[in-house]
Amino acid sequence: MNALRGQAMTGRERRGQAPDDPAALRRGLTPAQLRALETLEHFRWTLKFVRRPMFQDPVPVVFDRDGQRYAVLRGDGTLDESPGFRIRD
């Protein structure tokens, strides 16, 4: 196997990496999502990552203060605690 090819494959893995710039996570979120996120942060919820499916709006995923529950911030700023996907451990 080509060493460069192996590096390219491992370089594509982004899960588990902390974002370098927290503002980068917020980039592309709607004003309603940003307002909702600000409110959630008062209750110690945290924006952990943003799924960015091709040709679709970003899907921000927030976790509660204990890291036990997660939810998705919809484009209108509402919180969806049953988003239809599971988070891998």
Rank of each mutant, 00 (worst) to 15 (best):
F85P: 10
T39I: 09
N2M: 08
F85D: 04
R86M: 03
T78P: 04
Q68M: 12
Q33S: 06
G16A: 04
V50P: 02
P60M: 01
R5M: 11
A32H: 08
G67T: 07
P19H: 09
R69E: 09
R51K: 14
R74A: 15
L73E: 01
R69K: 13
G75K: 12
L79Y: 05
K48D: 13
H42Y: 08
R74W: 03
F49S: 10
T78K: 07
M54S: 11
L40H: 07
L40F: 06
A3E: 14
L73C: 06
F63A: 13
R51C: 07
P19R: 03
D64L: 02
E38H: 10
P31N: 11
L29P: 01
G75T: 09
I87N: 02
L29V: 06
R35H: 09
L79K: 03
F63S: 09
D66L: 07
M54F: 07
I87F: 06
F85N: 08
A8I: 15
L4W: 06
R65T: 10
P53K: 09
T30H: 06
N2K: 10
I87T: 10
R27E: 15
F63H: 11
A71D: 03
I87C: 08
W45T: 00
F63P: 00
R88K: 10
Q33K: 09
K48A: 13
L37T: 04
R12P: 00
M54A: 13
E41A: 15
T10P: 00
E81F: 00
H42A: 11
Q56A: 14
K48C: 01
F85A: 09
R88W: 01
H42C: 02
D21T: 08
R44F: 15
E13M: 10
V72I: 06
R74F: 02
E81W: 00
F85T: 06
D20C: 00
R12C: 03
Q7I: 12
R27M: 09
L34E: 02
Q7L: 15
P83H: 04
L34C: 01
R5G: 03
R35P: 02
A32K: 11
E13Q: 11
V59L: 14
V62Q: 00
D66C: 00
M1Q: 04
P22A: 01
P31S: 13
G75Q: 15
A18G: 05
R74K: 14
P31G: 12
Q17F: 11
M54C: 00
Q56W: 11
D20A: 12
E13I: 14
L29W: 03
T46A: 11
P53S: 11
F49E: 13
F63M: 14
L37V: 06
Y70F: 15
H42W: 07
V62H: 00
R74P: 00
G28L: 05
D64C: 05
D20R: 12
L4M: 11
P58E: 15
F63G: 02
A23Q: 15
G75N: 12
P83R: 02
R35L: 11
T39E: 15
D76F: 09
P53G: 10
D64F: 04
R15P: 00
L79E: 03
F43S: 15
F55I: 02
T46Y: 01
Q17W: 04
